[in-house]
Nucleic acid binder design. Structure first.
Lengths: 227, 227
DNA sequence: TCGGTATGTTCTCTTTTAGTTCACCTTTTG
DNA sequence: CAAAAGGTGAACTAAAAGAGAACATACCGA
């Protein structure tokens, strides 16, 4: 599953976390691998993240988390959660995890077809597999409406959203329009405009000036329950 | 199920992964099998993937993963694991539960379009929200194929199955046909016959005598991960 | 609020390693 | 015998990895 370098880095990260609970910086990883530039580390970290071995928060220092280890080494696998930047502003809680799963808050419903339903804060949580986490804070929404059925997102599904204010072309995002109406749609950039594309022939694409649209998060997972 | 060469290669891959957690390259596999060209290895790897013994990430180097081993060899190779909490099978057959989540075994892939894939023996688990459990024993399968897309079940999704040998009309079930071919389909009773209905216009309904069809479980949940 | 320090991110270039495909031949097996 | 599996070699494409620099962001303290 891993290349030699990826494995070497993963082991190093995991050791550092076990030793002192602080994840190494890119420079430290660079030195540990005997490199002269940290861009290579960056690539390795991305590869590990892509393969589901670690998780990280974007643009946060020393915010690596080991999700699993290759089987050979699994005896030492730990679930250290460490965020750097202690004592700074913001309630930046990384969801706690144990070996079973991760709990994330359920923030209400999102009408995939029309408007928002303001985020509520009843104490409601769902647990998801650790691998389904994105990089940042995650929360869940219940899908209402059928505008995304052609992408397999049905009315009543629970979607896992990673908080972010940026998204790449083609990603499914929670988009807030005119600061009042949130929907789940595929995002497309088109010059000055942003297109919010539904996945249902009965709905049409909204084309909006970029400034009217605010990305609130991107889709990273989906849960469905059959009755 | 496997040819001699396929088996030989599978064992080699599994050994390498157990030894150092790094999957072998095509060249290394070529040497291990005493070949002079790696195109043969390519064919063998494809065969193993097609039969569900391994999984690989498309266009990634050294990204092989062993999903199961032929029955007669199971256990042999994993014996290198020292004291992992991963490799040990443990008395885990009864799903442990707490308030966080539940771990259920991942039993392999099910080709929603065509044949079965025998249950494997790797200790692989996914955690799911407690509410997603059915009443009986549950396990997970990875969906392969697109025959259920119109019900929002996509290739690569993980489905949660509750073991049962009965199902009501209209439920989505894992059905074993002639004791050898399992598929995920909507079940319909029609007098003496049972219809296995796909959710994709490109596939057609199978109509079978009731005695040829055995229900193995019913669909109770679905998980999907976006990348 | 400003600027400095520490960190993370991107980009371009280069080399090395690895995966894919194709045409053609040989062996095994039902 | 015919079909399937296996083997060879070469050309081609793509990914992994390393370097170095510029740039962006977060944080901290004055």
């Amino acid at each position: 599953m891993l290349t030699a370098k990826q494995q070497q880095l993963l082991v190093f990260i995991q050791e550092r976390l076990a030793e002192n609970g602080v994840s190494p910086s890119f420079d430290e990883m660079k030195d540990a691998l005997g490199l002269k530039s940290k861009s290579g580390v960056h690539r390795l970290v991305n590869a590990l993240e892509e393969r589901g071995f670690i998780r990280r928060m974007a643009n946060r220092a020393r915010a690596l988390e080991v999700l699993k280890m290759p089987e050979k080494l699994s005896g030492t696998a730990a679930s250290n959660v460490v965020a750097g930047n202690f004592g700074s502003a913001g309630p930046r809680s990384i969801p706690s995890r144990d070996d079973q799963g991760v709990e994330i808050p359920l923030h209400g419903r999102i009408a995939a077809g029309t408007p928002i339903e303001a985020l509520e804060n009843r104490d409601s949580f769902v647990s998801i597999p650790p691998g389904m986490l994105g990089r940042g804070n995650c929360y869940a929404l219940e899908v209402s409406g059928d505008s995304m059925v052609e992408l397999g997102i049905l009315d009543g599904d629970t979607v896992v959203i990673e908080s972010t204010d940026t998204a790449r072309d083609g990603e499914v995002v929670v988009a807030l329009v005119d600061r009042e109406e949130a929907t789940l749609k595929t995002l497309r950039r088109n010059g000055q405009f942003i297109e919010l594309v539904p996945a249902n022939r009965d709905y049409s694409t909204q084309v909006l000036e970029a400034k009217r649209v605010q990305v609130q998060g991107r889709l990273v997972g989906l849960l469905r329950q059959y009755h």
